[in-house]
Design a protein around this nucleic acid. Structure first.
Length: 486
DNA sequence: CGAGGAGCGA
DNA sequence: ACGTCGCTCCTCGA
């Protein structure tokens, strides 16, 4: 509870009219309340917080919640989060997150150690090759040194710029790979090193010696879109990439031998929400007929029934990117087509899905007038600068206005699903439990004899969050580790 | 210690 | 001149 209010507070402090003020300042200025300072509690930093006596410590901690609540009552509920949201979503979710955090996730340390050995060998190998090609040793982890080797020493053509020098990121290197063999090896080195340092080492460091599980923290109010975020470790960015021999996700295993990892994810939730919010006939029709939405987009754009997998990929990208109010230039870069073609695709998309376009322009109009946007679940986001004269800023803010309601609503949907599922698990006295949330995916540790009921009931709960003609769709995967669940 | 570059996810 | 939101890694200069 305290954690949630604490993060809520940060959301408040980010805002311009309180920027620079500390909680103490706000307390005394707005509520004439003098808070205990940390210096006082820790007796001028001589005491560790665990050594402070319980009464003082609780009073000190409770003050944060108390003041935050005062701020909430006075200002926050007007615009950061509505009472209904707090009552129906955020507050009940606190207990669900507590349960997930208590459950933990079991890790196969041996698997990680095997991967470690493999990666270390590859890293040394790539390093050797690179140094041979470059005729000198340098620090591959330093973009600056890579820059010097590529552009000063090898005189390769420079691409896009960063703030301070020319970029040497993956995109540039992939282009350079056509010119010089060294680029390919740097990409490989970087990738192996990334996996080793960020995932393998970090996960092993965080595994509890006794339980062989990791303990992650979910934050409820750090993101502007009201999605959850996860730290130490961040379980929401574990690579999905699968090598022939291994993947990081394979190290995420069930608690017991006969248990299963079961994963449910919302399929195309953002496009479905777009259909629900815009009521576009063509989009709605495709979903109601339970058709392949990407294929249908291709069909609507070109009246072609047969579709190659390449064409489906393009249609998928168009569907996906249009939601983000993307420019033809950027779309052309994403899917390797000409700018002219990209513009054509986007124009045709709006032509065939006219109410989507209406919905977008109405959203922007509303935002320009009121300086905020709203979602299906009573949330508001203030977007100042929407009327900025600088076209680039204006466009960026328009993108925000269009994307936010969709992303927010999907964040709310999965939160509500989590609350209902936890209720369901408790009411039916099930031993299976929720162990992870990855934005549109929920992962469970399922005990053997409960698999049938979980398989049947969880998708029902998830798909019926919104009472609409268009149904949300949930895909299910299960196996002995998370790696096979995709 | 913080900024910047890089890269992973949704 | 151009997707958003996050987290974590490393380097480098103060």
């Amino acid at each position: 509870m305290a954690k949630f209010y604490d993060t809520l507070l940060w959301e408040y402090i980010k805002n311009p009219w309180v920027k620079g003020l500390s909680l103490d300042d706000i307390a005394s200025k707005e509520f004439d309340y003098k808070m205990i300072s940390y210096d006082e509690v820790s007796e001028k930093q001589t005491k560790n917080f665990t050594e402070v006596d319980l009464v003082t410590a609780s009073k000190y901690s409770a003050e944060d919640v108390y003041i935050t609540n005062l701020i909430y009552q006075k200002q926050l509920k007007e615009w950061v989060v509505d009472n209904k949201v707090l009552k129906n979503i955020e507050n009940p979710l606190i207990e669900v997150l507590r349960d997930i955090e208590i459950n933990w996730v079991k890790i196969d340390q041996n698997k990680l150690k095997q991967i470690w050995v493999f990666l270390e060998k590859e890293i040394i190998n790539q390093e050797k090759i690179i140094f041979e090609i470059a005729w000198e040793e340098f620090n591959l982890k330093s973009p600056k040194q890579v820059w010097e080797i590529l552009f000063d020493k090898l005189q390769l053509p420079q691409g896009k710029k960063t703030k301070t020098w020319y970029s040497v990121d993956n995109e540039v290197l992939e282009y350079l790979a056509l010119e010089h063999p060294i680029a390919k090896h740097i990409v490989l080195y970087r990738w192996y090193f990334k996996i080793l340092s960020t995932y393998v080492e970090w996960l092993l460091k965080l595994v509890d010696k006794d339980t062989k599980k990791i303990h992650t923290s979910y934050n409820q109010a750090v993101t502007t879109t009201w999605r959850l975020s996860s730290t130490s470790p961040n379980l929401q960015n574990i690579p999905t990439w699968k090598d022939v021999y291994w993947s990081i996700r394979e190290a995420f295993i069930p608690y017991k031998e006969n248990d299963l990892i079961v994963s449910f994810d919302y399929s195309q939730i953002e496009v479905r929400l777009l259909a629900i919010m815009s009521w576009d006939e063509n989009l709605t029709w495709s979903f109601l007929q339970n058709l392949d939405i990407h294929k249908m987009t291709w069909y609507f754009l070109f009246w072609k029934d047969d579709i190659t997998s390449e064409e489906r990929k393009i249609a998928k990208a168009v569907n996906f990117w249009v939601i983000y109010w993307i420019s033809p230039f950027w779309l052309s870069k994403m899917i390797w087509i000409s700018q002219k073609q990209a513009k054509e695709y986007i124009d045709k998309f709006y032509e065939k899905y006219p109410k989507v376009k209406d919905f977008f322009s109405k959203t922007i109009e509303f935002c320009e007038k009121n300086l905020y946007v709203e979602t299906l679940f009573w949330r508001k986001r203030f977007i100042d600068w929407i009327n900025d004269r600088n076209a680039i800023i204006k466009k960026a803010k328009e993108r925000e206005a269009i994307n936010m309601p969709i992303q927010w609503t999907s964040a709310d949907i999965i939160k509500i699903a989590m609350i209902k599922i936890n209720d369901f698990l408790i009411k039916n006295d099930l031993k299976s439990c929720m162990i992870m949330q990855v934005h549109d995916e929920l992962v469970f540790n399922v005990v053997e004899n409960e698999f049938e009921i979980i398989k049947k009931e969880i998708p029902l709960i998830m798909e019926n969050i919104i009472d609409d003609k268009i149904k949300l769709k949930v895909d299910m995967w299960f196996w002995k580790n998370w790696g096979e669940c995709k």
